[in-house]
């Protein structure tokens, strides 16, 4: 491995993409290149590529034009915030420019497989949360949903609900990352929350929740009870914010 060229970047998403753009431009064979996050240790080897946000953005747009599916995979891969897979991502993007969207089928390539597997997981959690997110109505009439997803899916999730609950004023709050989205009067905003205080619920909220809990219990066929199947479809890590699973 020592004959491979080593490159370093600063650990940010923009830095990663601009490093990939730079390498694809300058290196004849990106398959022979390693890309790592700079740790500033004493004996660290490698050539540092400075972050250039414009370069990062243009890489993404070029990829989207050239291979839209592969660009989507890149986007969902980034939601996973995975560390240590930079070289795989470099190889994936380089192959996507040569082969187009077909690259996603090149699963015998270890780099491609890494990226596709991780992005598939992020995609699955995003899809799951579209169903499992629970809003509560607050006293001022707005709705609030809290979540602790493994992947950083706040943005695509908020876009999903901006097309769905359009006439409603709502907040999405990622408790672990302290980030939030707010939809009001047709505009979507993102931000961080330093100090979160649980607001008071509206008067009718407990009543509606009780109805949902009742429905949840009665809709199951008693002769077909199957808690294992229930847990495999709806892992317990999501139960914390599920209205129907409170008190279990």
């Amino acid at each position: 491995m020592s004959c491979m060229n080593r490159y370093l970047y600063d650990g940010t998403a923009d830095g990663l993409l601009s490093a990939i753009a730079w390498i694809i431009e300058e290196e004849p064979d990106p398959e022979q290149v390693l890309l790592l996050e700079r740790k500033d240790t004493l004996f660290e080897e490698g050539f540092f590529i400075a972050t250039d946000a414009t370069l990062a953005e243009s890489l993404f747009f070029r990829l989207r034009h050239h291979a839209p599916d592969a660009a989507h995979t890149l986007y969902t891969f980034m939601l996973a915030e995975k560390e240590g897979m930079e070289t795989s991502l470099l190889h994936y993007v380089a192959l996507a420019f040569t082969h187009g969207d077909k690259v996603k089928g090149h699963l015998t390539h270890p780099g491609v497989r890494d990226i596709v597997t991780v992005s598939r997981k992020a995609e699955r959690e995003l899809h799951r949360m579209k169903g499992l997110l629970r809003f509560e109505k607050l006293q001022d009439g707005a709705y609030l949903a809290k979540m602790e997803p493994d992947h950083n899916i706040l943005h695509p999730l908020a876009w999903h609900f901006s097309r769905r609950l359009r006439a409603q004023h709502w907040f999405l709050y990622d408790v672990r990352r302290r980030t939030a989205a707010r939809w009001n009067n047709g505009s979507l905003r993102f931000g961080t929350i330093e100090q979160f205080t649980t607001p008071a619920l509206s008067d009718e909220e407990k009543k509606v929740q009780a109805m949902w809990q009742t429905f949840f219990k009665t809709i199951a066929i008693p002769d077909r009870k199957n808690p294992r199947l229930q847990k495999s479809n709806m892992p317990m890590k999501y139960w914390k914010y599920l209205t129907e699973k409170q008190g279990e």
Binding site: F215, F216, Q230
Partner: peptide
């Protein structure tokens, strides 16, 4: 597409919202 003055849209692939005690998906009321 959801109406701008109203509530709700539909998604082509369908979405599960919960799974009841018999393991079946709950998607609709």
């Amino acid at each position: 597409e959801g109406p701008s003055c109203g509530t709700g849209n539909t998604s082509l692939g369908g979405i599960c919202h919960s799974w009841s005690d018999d393991g079946r998906c709950i998607s609709l009321l």
